[in-house]
Amino acid sequence: MSTIFSHIWRSSTGRFGLILAVAIIGSAAFAPWLAGDPNRIDVFNRFAGPSWQHWMGTDHLGRDLFSRILHGARIAMEVAAAVTAIALSLGTVLGVAAGYGPRQVERPILILFDILYSFPNLIFALALVAILGPGLDNVVIIVAMTVMPHFGRIARAQVLRLKHAPFLEAERVLGASTARIVFRHVIPNIAGPLIVVAGMEVPAVITIEAGLSFLGLGARPPLASWGTLLHDGYTYLSQSGWPVFFAGMMLTTATLAFTLFGEALRDAIDPRLRMDP
């Protein structure tokens, strides 16, 4: 653990990403203490620019943008955590089943993955929104389904590499049950690469959630998600550019932070997972 950390810390981009990511997670966790009420309306102070009172200005209802953006970080981080947890567990189950199970199990799972890959990410998410209906809870499920195949593919590939390893053969010879082999040996051994994929998927998850919320299909007002902030800002773009500017910057910073952190994590744990730049 400490070696992974020191590995990340040694690379300058990894350090930069880690610090930014910790700052974002921290501001998400302590948002209620760091900033005022994100929903306090002050109609006499609409579309205000940055000032000492409102660091990032105010929106179309005079709500404090700084506070709304910090609370938006909460939603982004909560969604990222929930999506990653669902996609990671479901992808691992399917991937391990495909890799370790018999062909009758492997084939349908691989076909499912291939089909899911045949949809562009966002289009698949939109199709699911049309079926399941809008809302933040549905968005969590939808984004999890969208990114799940990445986990599944990596899990399967790792299991295939491991399947005939001598130590697993030895376990089998000793009469260990399949359940014991899978849970005690296979899953702990493929955990590293899966954590790397989890780290690398966070930016995509944040972006898709913000995108769906921007289209009005995810978080609903008055909830302050970066996507809804961008949506409101876009609607009132001719009155003030500040909401859009700050919300967009925050979203970009978060994506950048988790991309750099994810890449450093990958280089620290398993550089062979380098997929594409």
Binding site: L230, Y234, L237, L251, L256, T259
Partner: peptide
């Protein structure tokens, strides 16, 4: 790296802001 990190809809809104509003 910076450009890859910026989601395209943010780029779209920024371009709209700069070229149509400003």
């Amino acid at each position: 790296v910076g450009l890859i990190s910026m989601p395209s809809f943010v780029v779209s809104i920024y371009l709209l802001l700069v070229f149509s509003i400003w």
